[in-house]
Design a protein around this nucleic acid. Structure first.
Length: 260
DNA sequence: ATGTCAAGGCCACCTTGA
């Protein structure tokens, strides 16, 4: 089973890219982030026509997450538990049933947290604490689990071409990195680092200053796996070439293959 | 060295967010 995550930076601007990439990559499950539209404006029928079931949590102009699945979507949960007042569309989770078993998948758009010194950074940290608390509950189910998305966290210096440029950025703050480590310490495996422990690989290149041409990238899109999923991990792939298509997202798809 | 991009308001440019 192939599971992917991709921050598309507006689904309506990127629909052609998405359909082209679905055709070439043939994923079974896709986690999308930054839809930047309400559910009504999401191009559901176009994606369903390609054989996917679709679940969307939308919001006007900002955020927005979705799950696409070739398998039936069950046990749908929209929103991260722990703050009923949080209106931001950043979390959607469901169970995908499969003849050989089930996998629970979440599409996550973790808050960016910039600029430092504003309320955005504590909101990010509190959101990470809520994610950790929910992940603990999900891990207790002892089932294959994939928490995938744009985490807006650069976990280590290896995950940035120029780590020194990110020292005053919310994505590379000690508090952000410590919470990412706490999350993993619950028993989750960073699938890309499991397969590529020492390789400098990136999933995001800024639109500005020729960052892509200079390979001035960062790795912030992650797929974290429960032990039951990690034991089935057969490989990972980062589809960097998609960043060089015309009018691309600033993020590229990250994929894993599970022997499920 | 923001050298970029997208959405929304109510414009034909500004603000917000990334």
């Amino acid at each position: 089973m192939r599971i992917a995550t991709w921050n598309v930076n507006s689904i309506r601007q990127r629909l052609e890219h998405l359909t082209r990439w679905l055709d070439e990559a043939q994923p079974d499950v896709v986690c999308l982030q930054e839809l930047k539209c309400m559910e009504e404006a999401f191009p559901k029928s176009e994606i369903e026509a390609l054989g996917y079931n679709v679940a969307v949590s939308g919001q006007k102009a900002f955020n927005g997450v979705a799950l696409l699945s070739k398998m039936p979507i069950e046990d749908l949960r929209i929103g991260l538990p722990g703050n009923d007042g949080d209106e931001q569309a950043r979390y959607i989770e469901a169970v995908m049933s499969h003849p050989e078993g089930v996998v629970r998948v979440a599409s996550i758009y973790l808050p960016n947290g910039n600029p430092l010194g504003t309320e955005k950074f504590p909101y990010k940290l509190a959101w990470m604490d809520r994610l950790t608390s929910h992940a603990k509950d999900l891990l207790a189910l002892e089932e294959p689990l994939v928490l995938a998305g744009d985490y807006n966290v650069i976990p280590t210096p290896l995950d940035a071409r120029h780590p020194e440029k990110w020292t005053n950025d919310a994505l590379f703050q000690p508090e952000s990195r410590a919470r990412f480590e706490t999350l993993k310490a619950l028993g989750l495996t960073d699938s890309v680092r499991q397969c590529l422990p020492d390789e400098p690989v990136y999933t995001f290149w800024d639109y500005q200053a020729g960052a892509r041409q200079r390979n001035d990238g960062i790795r912030i899109d992650h797929l974290l796996l429960s032990p039951e999923a990690t034991s089935k991990l057969a490989g990972v792939r980062i589809d960097q070439h998609v960043r060089d298509w015309e009018k691309p997202s600033d993020h590229v798809p990250v994929l894993i293959d599970l022997t499920l």
